[in-house]
Simulated assay, not measured.
Amino acid sequence: MRDIIQATKEYVKQKLSAEVTGHDWWHIKRVYENSILIMKETADPLQREVVELAALLHDIADWKFHDGDESIGPRVAREWLESQQVHEKVIRHVCQIVKDISFKGAGTHNSMKSIEGQIVQDADRLDALGAIGIARTFAYGGFKGRELFNPIIEPKMHKTAEEYKSQQSTTINHFFEKLLLLKDRMNTQAAKKLAIERHQYMVEFLKKFFQESQHEGSHHYKLLSYYN
């Protein structure tokens, strides 16, 4: 299995090394390392190879870059794992994690079905928080051609995945619509602890942003009090 893990690392690195939205190889590497860290603090019995493979393949074909097609990620992951002759039971488990991992709106709750999936989902969400999360958010917003900030456009708590996918928002709104919600949606105790400091860093960044842009009286600034 170690050979398959190494081969998967090389495969993902080759596929995503030139990616510019913050979903690149270095994001994958951080999620992989966060997954290892969380595993070490998880008492539940688990399949280590499932966690490692799912962490490496979770963004191999993200629906956000494939016209909202949620089937493409699991399909590409399966094709790769089958080419490596991975056991079918492991393939099914990894592909289920890849399918379920994404955040799809404040009003949706896609619960992970296994401790392995919970670990990888937490590791992925940790990389959306803190200083790295801020940097990735602006990289993605620029790629999508989003307006940086518009005080007239208020954040929206999307009730369905379809609404979340189709809504064109601003980069600053993305913090309220997703990132500031993640701390309270972590699955594991280890990730919950790690998320606290990263979450607070984003809150302080946004406070500074609104102060410097002279929007301390805005609806956005007032919303921050709910996230402290």
Rank of each mutant, 00 (worst) to 15 (best):
R2S: 15
I5W: 03
A7R: 08
A7W: 06
A7F: 07
T8L: 01
L16M: 00
L16N: 01
S17N: 15
S17F: 15
T21P: 02
D24F: 02
D24A: 02
W25T: 06
W26H: 14
K29I: 04
R30W: 09
I36N: 09
I38T: 07
M39F: 05
M39H: 06
M39Q: 07
Q47K: 13
A54H: 06
L56Q: 03
D59H: 11
A61L: 00
D62W: 06
H66C: 09
H66D: 08
D67K: 12
G68R: 01
D69M: 05
G73N: 15
L81I: 00
E82C: 10
V86Y: 05
V90P: 05
V90F: 04
R92A: 14
V94I: 07
I101M: 10
K104E: 13
G105S: 02
A106N: 02
T108N: 03
N110P: 10
S111E: 15
S111N: 12
M112A: 08
M112T: 05
K113P: 04
K113W: 06
Q118V: 05
V120T: 05
D122R: 03
L126G: 07
D127H: 05
L129T: 02
G130I: 05
R136G: 00
G142V: 09
F149Y: 07
F149E: 01
F149G: 04
I153H: 11
K156I: 14
M157S: 06
K159N: 10
A161R: 06
E163G: 14
E163V: 15
E163R: 09
K165F: 13
S169H: 10
T170R: 07
I172F: 04
H174K: 13
E177H: 03
L182T: 05
D184I: 09
T188V: 06
T188S: 01
Q189H: 14
A191I: 06
K192N: 08
A195C: 00
E197R: 14
R198C: 05
H199E: 00
H199F: 02
K207C: 08
F209S: 05
Q211E: 13
Q211H: 12
E212K: 11
S213E: 08
Q214R: 13
H215N: 14
E216C: 12
S218F: 01
L223G: 08
S225R: 13
N228K: 09
